[in-house]
């Protein structure tokens, strides 16, 4: 799915956090949005991922603006995956049940557990596995409906460097299989894995490079 942000401006109260952002995310690419705290990368990611409506400008998904996409819940469920800084696994469900929670077809759950290397933990609860394993389960949950694009906000923020690199490798691997990733991060190591890097500063795109 091609995502185009056109003339995006966003305010929190009187504070302008995005000031005229125009970017294009190509289908299946691994795009990293990097920048310092307060640069606007998380706000941009939220707007691109349909979670936040921009104050001005619009985002098009394969040429359609948000209001033309129909039921937003259905659109998210079939086209978009989310990975957050915190795993947000539901504590009373096993890893497998967490992944299957929003699954349209459960058949993908086991293959994802396998490919993310957590199939042996499928019946464990989130408090019975490590931080890296939890984040892998959260990634599996985002991928369960084979979305066109996965948005990740600081997905390695709570992980050590070894697990963080493991997450980037997973994104790279799935990206090569056709799933797009848009990742907001302040970790510059992501640049080694991403196809496109969008560098944000003070609410504007400072630079886009490959």
């Amino acid at each position: 799915m091609k995502i185009e942000a056109l003339g995006i401006e966003h305010f929190y109260g009187h504070e302008k956090v995005l000031n005229g952002v125009d970017i294009t995310i190509t289908p299946g690419s691994f795009t990293a949005i990097i920048g310092e705290s307060g640069s606007g990368k998380t706000t941009l990611l939220s707007i691109l991922s349909t979670l936040l409506q921009p104050t001005f400008g619009n985002v098009q998904y394969d040429g359609k603006i948000l209001s033309e996409l129909g039921n937003i819940d259905r659109f998210r469920r079939t086209n978009i995956g989310f990975v957050f800084q915190f795993h947000y696994l539901i504590s009373y469900l096993t890893l497998r049940e967490n992944i299957a929670l929003g699954a349209i077809e459960e058949s993908r759950v086991d293959s994802l557990l396998e490919s993310l290397g957590i199939s042996n933990l499928s019946h464990r609860y989130s408090d019975e596995v490590s931080g890296g394993e939890r984040q892998r389960a959260a990634i599996a949950r985002a991928l369960v409906n084979a979305p066109s694009v996965v948005f990740a906000d600081e997905p390695t923020g709570n992980l050590d460097s070894k697990n963080a690199l493991g997450v980037y490798e997973l994104f790279r691997e799935f990206s090569l299989q056709g799933t797009g990733f848009v990742v907001a991060s302040h970790d510059k190591k992501i640049a080694d894995y991403a196809d496109v890097i969008i560098e944000m500063e003070d609410g504007v795109v400072k630079k886009v490079y490959k």
Binding site: L51, D73, R74, F75, R76, R77, T78, I80, G81, F82, F84, Y88, I90, L101, G102, R141, A142, N145
Partner: peptide, 8 residues
């Protein structure tokens, strides 16, 4: 999280 994964 349920809302984010598209549960109605």
């Amino acid at each position: 999280i349920m809302r984010s994964i598209g549960l109605s």
